[in-house]
């Protein structure tokens, strides 16, 4: 789909390139000594194993051909981050995800839910069942977009090291079952239980609440970490 940095394996040990020096310079082990280079046939004019150290190695772009094809399955895991990406991620604190750990950021979820409920209370066309359902739905849609839809960071400070990760995956560097993640998991479940309760167990509303709750709970599971579902 895209030329993602992960599609090329930066980690693979680069044996060829390092060995080519060894071969070329194998006869000058101690270079501080006067030269013991010999005029010999060992020293080839093409000084690399593959013969790629020539003015034109081949008229083929190297990477479009070696770049691995994406599998066509609907569900696939992101390839693990390369060492370069991890270094870039560690260079600066991830300001995009770190604020979630603040106590105020926890509180704001509760406050937002209360404000939403108050807002819907003012809409008199809705009965009480719908008011709770709407509160639940709004919170779930909002948190889905925020935590699971948008990828990357809004401001650039890691050379795009987080570009493939959702905010949920960025929180606590992808560690699972951390206090913040526990809190964020429990909020939609609690809200669902409360809203079904107050919507008097109307079956349709129950389905609406339940499905929207699952939509934000399932992506938060540990098994869904770095999992991508592509429907189109």
């Amino acid at each position: 789909m895209s030329l993602s940095p992960n599609s090329r394996d930066y980690l693979s040990p680069d044996i060829n390139s390092s060995s080519q020096y060894i071969r070329r310079n194998s006869n000058i082990e101690n270079i501080n000594q006067p030269s013991n280079l010999q005029s010999s046939s060992q020293h080839a004019r093409k000084n690399s194993i593959n013969g790629d150290l020539t003015p034109t190695p081949s008229h083929q772009p190297a990477h479009t051909i070696t770049r691995p094809r994406r599998s066509s399955s609907i569900i696939q895991h992101l390839e693990p981050d390369t060492i370069d990406t991890k270094i870039d991620q560690a260079l600066n604190p991830n300001l995009n995800a770190n604020w979630v750990n603040q106590k105020g950021a926890w509180l704001i979820h509760i406050i937002i839910i209360i404000i939403l409920k108050i807002f819907y209370n003012f809409l008199n066309i809705l009965n009480n069942d719908w008011k709770w359902t709407m509160t639940n739905l709004t919170y779930n849609i909002g948190s889905y977009i925020m935590f699971h839809q948008v990828k990357g960071t809004p401001f650039e400070f890691n050379s795009g090291a987080y570009d493939n990760l959702t905010m949920w995956e960025q929180i606590d560097n992808g560690d699972q079952y951390t206090p913040t993640k526990k809190f964020l998991m429990i909020v939609p479940i609690g809200l669902f239980l409360i809203s079904t309760h107050y919507s008097n167990y109307n079956l349709n509303l129950f389905l609406l609440n339940g499905l929207s709750c699952l939509c934000v709970v399932i992506p938060k599971l540990a098994i869904a970490h770095r999992l991508r579902v592509t429907l189109y």
């Binding site: 390092s18 020096y21 310079n25 270079i31 004019r45 093409k46 150290l53 190695p57 190297a62």
Partner: peptide, 27 residues
């Protein structure tokens, strides 16, 4: 018997610069 080019071609062929800097080349 001087080589056509010096250094390494890792950056060209793999897209990633060589892990080690070029060694001293007597030629």
């Amino acid at each position: 018997n001087l080589p056509l080019l010096y250094g390494n071609s890792s950056f060209i062929t793999t897209g990633k610069p060589s892990q080690y800097p070029n060694k001293f080349d007597e030629y």
